[in-house]
């Protein structure tokens, strides 16, 4: 499909406006980011910027996942004013696996289990005080978990 230029410009503007809106509106599932098929695209849609690498984001995930269908992930941080925590698996068909919206009473420590289709870099992205911080780890998958 050919994308005409007008349409593209309109799309870019629309995304820009959406990202500029206050985060209260984030109280809806970021469907667009979930639909992205590329890790960078998912992150650009969800965060609007490239997260800054930070060792204050702690990503606990096995280095070798024997079963890609069930990979336990725990993300925590000592950053303050945490607004959201997201998990991105760079090489998955849908890279954004999960995004957690936290409130003022939340403790920034979340665990979930994800599927990994193949060995990939996994990113944990924390939004705190309006900025994005990330930590990544390379996970080796012995048996892929996307079926097929």
């Amino acid at each position: 499909m050919k994308i005409d230029r007008r349409f593209f410009i309109r799309k870019v503007l629309a995304v820009g406006v959406l990202l500029a809106l206050p985060r209260i509106l984030f109280a809806a599932r970021p469907d667009k980011a979930f639909a992205a098929t590329d890790g960078d695209e998912a992150m650009a849609t969800l965060f609007g910027e490239t997260p800054v690498a930070s060792d204050r984001v702690v990503l606990k995930i096995p280095e070798i996942a024997e079963n890609g269908a069930v990979v336990p992930v725990t993300i925590s941080t000592d950053l303050e004013n945490v607004e959201s925590i997201s998990v991105v698996v760079a090489k998955n068909p849908t890279p954004l696996a999960a995004s957690f919206a936290l409130g003022p009473r939340s403790v920034a420590n979340v665990s979930v289990r994800i599927k990994m289709g193949e060995s990939s870099q996994v990113l944990a992205v924390v939004k705190a005080g309006g900025k994005h911080y990330s930590t990544s780890k390379d996970v080796k998958v012995t048996i892929g978990g996307c079926g097929g």
Binding site: T94, L96, A97, A98, S99, A101, V107, I114, K115
Partner: peptide
């Protein structure tokens, strides 16, 4: 609040 995609494992476990 958790927003999930299809890459969350079968019979999801979550802790917060």
């Amino acid at each position: 609040t958790a927003y999930w995609g299809p890459a969350v494992s079968k019979n999801p476990f979550v802790s917060f």
